[in-house]
C-alpha cells in the first residue's frame, strides 16, 4: 500500500481510496485479508481512529467486510463494484462535461461520436 500524505484530502478518505485502488489494481484479491487498522496505523503513523474511519467508508461501500475475530477481508464482487462505480464517476466527470462543451461548440452528436471513434483509432 502506498500513501501520499501531502495531498489536500483528509487522511481517512485517502485511506479509503488507497484500499479501493489496491483492490481495483488487483493488489488485494477478493476474499483476501487486508492489513488491520493497527497494522496500517503503525506502519504509517496514522491515528487508529482515522484509519478506522477510512476502513468504514470501504465497508459501507461493501468493498471489504469484517469477519469477527479474524479481521478485514475483500468482499466478493468488490472489484466489479469499484469498476462500476468508476464508470459512473467517469460518466459524471468526463462525459457530461464533454457533451456540454460539444454543445457549446455546436458539435452534433454524430460529429462527437466520430471524434470519439477517431480517438480510439489513434
Amino acid at each position: 500500500m502506498q500513501f501520499q500524505f501531502n495531498s489536500s484530502e483528509p487522511i481517512y478518505r485517502q485511506v479509503a481510496e488507497q484500499i479501493e485502488d489496491a483492490i481495483a489494481a488487483g493488489g488485494f484479491e477478493e476474499g483476501q485479508q487486508i492489513p488491520s487498522t493497527t497494522e496500517i496505523s503503525k506502519e504509517f503513523h496514522i491515528n487508529p481512529a482515522t484509519v478506522l474511519k477510512g476502513m468504514n467508508i470501504a465497508v459501507a461501500k461493501n468493498l471489504i467486510e469484517k469477519r469477527r475475530g479474524l479481521g478485514m477481508f475483500v468482499s466478493q464482487g468488490a472489484r466489479q463494484r469499484i469498476v462500476a462505480e468508476k464508470k459512473d464517476s467517469f460518466f459524471e466527470t468526463f462525459v457530461v462535461g464533454l457533451v456540454k462543451e460539444a454543445q457549446n461548440l455546436g458539435i452534433s452528436e454524430s460529429e462527437l461520436l466520430a471524434l470519439i471513434k477517431r480517438g480510439y483509432e489513434q
Partner: peptide
Amino acid sequence: FYSELIQSYT
C-alpha cells in the same frame, strides 16, 4: 517509538 505508541494506544 511512534509505532509502539500506536500499539500501546490500541
